[in-house]
Design a protein around this nucleic acid. Sequence first.
DNA 1: TCTCAACGC
Length: 743
Amino acid sequence: MSAFPLAAAASLSSSSSVAQSYGSALPPAMILAVIRENPVTIVVGETGSGKTTQMTQYLHEDGYTSLGLIGCTQPRRVAAMSVAKRVSEEMGVELGQEVGYAIRFEDCTSDKTFIKYMTDGVLLRETLSSEDLFQYKAVIMDEAHERSLNTDVLFGILKKVVAMRADFKLIVTSATLDSAKFASFFGNAPVFNIPGRTFPVDVLWSRTPQEDYVEAAVKQALAIHLRDPPGDILIFMTGQEEIEATCFSLAERLDQMRSGGQDVPELMILPIYSQLPSDLQAKIFDKAPEGSRKCIVSTNIAETSLTVDGIYYVIDTGYVKMKVYNPKMGMDALQVFPESQAAANQRSGRAGRTGPGTAYRLYTESAFKHEMLVSSVPEIQRTNLANVVLLLKSLNVDNLLHFDFMDPPPQENILNSMHQLWVLGALDNVGGLTSTGRHMVEFPLEPALAKLLLAGAAMGCSAEALTIVSMLSVPSVFFRPPDRAEESDAAREKFFVPESDHLTLLHVYQQWKNNGYRGDWCARHYLQGKGLKKAKEVRAQLLDIMKTQRLPLTSCGSDWDVVRKAICSAYFSNAGKFKGIGEYVNCRTGMPCHLHPSSALYGLGYTPDYVVYHELGMPCHLHPSSALYGLGYTPDYVVYHELVFTSKEYMQCVSAVEPEWLAELGPMFFSIKESHSSRQERRKKEAATAAAMAAEAAQAEEAKAAAAAAAAAEEAERRQKAREAAATPAGRRATTPRRPLGL
DNA sequence: TCTCAACGC
């Protein structure tokens, strides 16, 4: 048996009611003995304890793999891949053979595989085809304290598996903070403590609350740079805008000092956030030249996803951006909240990976103790659960309100998600799965996108739907370097299909295909080649699933109106009705959604005689990245992929739709009837004594509407022409059908 | 009032 590097310092503590004690030195044999004797074991292992790579090998050496697989789940794909690679190297086998990994759209395992690393979402999906996970003898849920949505659902499912199978072992890793809670959820499971090998970090508090934490962080970073011994600095901010402001201000202050004659050593200022193009991201791993140091300004991405060595100083603003779902509004809000105490400790810990470090917290100790939650609200309690509901339904969980969640989500979220699925035709009137629902659950997609594929198949445009769904399943392919924002925006606009952001994505993909899937073509048009390639892979995998589902692959050619209709049938719950310049209202909830001034739909309007009827109305905005933003024509009705409140209620990924489609495809929400205003008009006219005058008035009204419509059409045409003149992607006009919508 | 954290199936 290989040496267990953790054993020397490992100890076993017990949960409240299991009074076992194993002393301070714990050989692997003892850990394995406890696992043998208990169906569930909680392992508290700090970062750097090596548990992720060692535990699977121990279980293998203890014979668990002779009868089945050992699975180990990770919250992130890169972790699943890199850990599998390392373990395969340690065991001297080829990756993908005895040791492999599986992530969405990528299965790197074989018949020989007995240790399998995977994302927790993959294991969750596997429970669909084998409810008791019979192929696994043991599952290790790593980083379970992060409490991802999938982890939490798996908790409930694996608890059942443990109850069903006496031969199954579950090992859950947790942070110290949650170990008692985890142990109690799994029936007083024993708890191991495996100390990590990180260095101590001095925590320094702000004496007074900071009004402007960007300014405070800049000052602190400069103070460290000018005063303290070598070692790199990591600053945590909430988002891209703050990061850029911080970087700018730091550079400016350094310039000022130098031009004032001060001798300031060099400081590499490095922003990092997920939307940053990957070549710029990679710079944070460059070593600072001798005599200088680097200062990384980061979002949460450096809290868990990215680990940079050499950090001795952490500056923590104390805030974090989080998505919170509001079921009443059907909207996500992306808002800044104080971080949790657990997150603060995690951030501080980033200063202690290479040597003893210092964490500067830009808030008071009292704020930490009294204003911060001990740990973050688990994702399952603040998210749309449509996907989870669909999955549990297909696992025959009849009553979701009684499902054994460690922290149950608000009942309202569950009921709202069930309603969404009913609306999409995935659930019947008594909450059972329909055949549509059974088709949908086969796709590793959110329900609306799965529905879009099914609708595409039914309407003869599944090839186009497939491309759009694939493009929405990868990070945005539009490349927007902060220093070339205008150029890249102009490049993006050349691909715009004015009536639809969804069709714009389709257009980009088709152009890329027409240009031989070339990388240099991507670079020229400010597109992420990597993302497009990924979309192509995703498309192929989804196509495989479509084949097994016997769904036809058909193209509608250049008749893209059909595609918009398919989009409408997936997204009619997210319909917005034109309200005023730049402003829409969600037809159902009354939620506001605004057109962004750069939308194609912005700035023009007309009044239809008939409307899709709904009294409520709240504004929603077009996102500035939308093809519909500010380009000059305004459809009366749009559907959107997602509504997120940031500075405003912004719709993301918007398509114009015909009102009669909404009535046809979403009859539970919409019916066509005469609008209030046009009814009044009619009655007025009826009351008029002179029939001739009334007719004249009507004529005048019509002429006005026609003129407005013509003007709108002309304007749209003009803008289109202007864009075409500027556009370079070959053949765009030839392949993009368009007509001014609803005019 | 012209822009969004980072994860995942």
